[in-house]
């Protein structure tokens, strides 16, 4: 047993890579783990330097970087500028993804159902309980909505996906904001709690009348029916790469201290309202300057060469203007000597 777990640990370590004396070490969000692993693999092939990334969750990632046990922390829920200042941390967005509402309704296919923010909030608060509710009917005059109870599915574990989802609901519904709020785990008034994106996907797939929220890649891989959303501009949009990118392009990164931008509910006709970025945290005055520089070299490689790899895994690379801003911030803020 011990030997086997040791072997598998060694295998994982080997696949992520470990060569350079010290290794780039990071910990945090689970959502970007697949793309970080892919980038690390490519980087290792290109340079021989490896990355040791532990996907232990956003909250745990913040704890680890604050404890200085890793060179960088990764989180889906960005730290506010004030917290960054206090901790002496630099923060920037690394890659983006989309969150999509997924449903299980017999006879309804992807793109046939449209939901707006306030209605979504009411469903997740348990105020709309049937699929043939007038609010849903008004949004979907063409679809035939059954007289069926809505089974809400949400995350049971703390999650950056939940953070971005509840952030959106708080922006579009003052009721949600005052009663429930924004966090990686909240007090859900109704519904089934499932573990992880795959848990939610599996629950929605197995329950007639269910609605849940997952990262775009999970909806795609599990062939789940997703709903279109009405965005801030009042336009109906489908969850596509273009819609996620539009949301990122419309965000005002330059004016946000610490790149504290949450990509939900962005303006613009094409913007998908549930877009999310995932962030990296590093010390401005690193304890180990060599390790810090190696990490920055890795992130630079990811920005410059990693775009297509990200797209292949359904992530959205950061727009070029944002990358330029991030690189400028590195040069001015992080001590590299």
């Amino acid at each position: 047993m011990f030997l086997r777990s040791f072997l598998s640990a060694a295998l994982i370590a080997a696949s992520v890579g470990c060569a350079w004396a010290g290794d780039i070490s990071g910990a945090g969000a689970t959502f970007p783990f697949p793309i970080y692993a892919k980038w690390a693999d490519a980087y290792k092939k290109a340079t021989g330097n490896g990355l040791n990334y532990q996907s232990i969750g956003s909250g745990a990632g913040i704890k680890q970087i604050k404890a200085k046990t890793v060179t960088f922390g990764a989180t889906d829920a960005p730290l506010k500028a004030k917290d960054l200042e206090e901790a002496g941390l630099e923060q920037w967005p690394m890659v983006m993804g989309g969150i999509v509402p997924v449903v299980n309704l017999s006879g309804v296919k992807s793109g046939e159902l449209t939901i707006d923010g306030p209605t979504l909030a009411k469903i997740f608060m348990g105020k709309i309980t049937k699929w043939n509710d007038p609010a849903l009917k008004a949004l979907n005059s063409k679809a035939s909505l059954p007289d069926l109870a809505i089974a809400v599915v949400h995350r049971a574990d703390g999650s950056g996906t939940t953070f971005n989802f509840t952030n959106y609901l708080s922006k579009v519904s003052s009721d949600w904001n005052s009663a429930i709020g924004v966090a990686t785990s909240v007090e859900w008034p109704v519904g089934i709690g499932a573990k992880g994106n795959d848990g939610v996907a599996n629950n929605v797939a197995g329950t007639n009348g269910a609605i849940g929220y997952v990262e775009y890649a999970y909806a795609k891989q599990n062939h789940l029916t997703y709903a279109d959303m009405i965005n801030k501009a009042g336009k109906a949009v489908a969850p596509t790469m273009e819609a996620f990118q539009a949301a990122a392009a419309n965000a005002d990164w330059a004016k946000a201290p610490g790149f504290y931008v949450i990509l939900t509910d962005q303006s613009g006709d094409e913007s998908w309202p549930l877009t999310a970025a995932t962030f990296i945290l590093m010390y401005k005055k690193p304890v180990d300057v060599t390790a810090s520089n190696e990490a920055l070299k890795f992130f630079e490689y990811c920005y410059d060469k990693g775009g297509d790899m990200a797209k292949a895994l359904d992530y959205i690379p950061m727009p070029e203007n944002v990358v330029a801003l991030v690189k400028k911030a590195w040069a001015t803020d992080i001590r590299q000597k």
Binding site: I56, G57, G59, A60, D157, G158, S159, T184, S185, K195
Partner: peptide
Amino acid sequence: AMIANQFADADP
């Protein structure tokens, strides 16, 4: 179940 679900991400 609560501890298993929430401990990893809990703020201090």
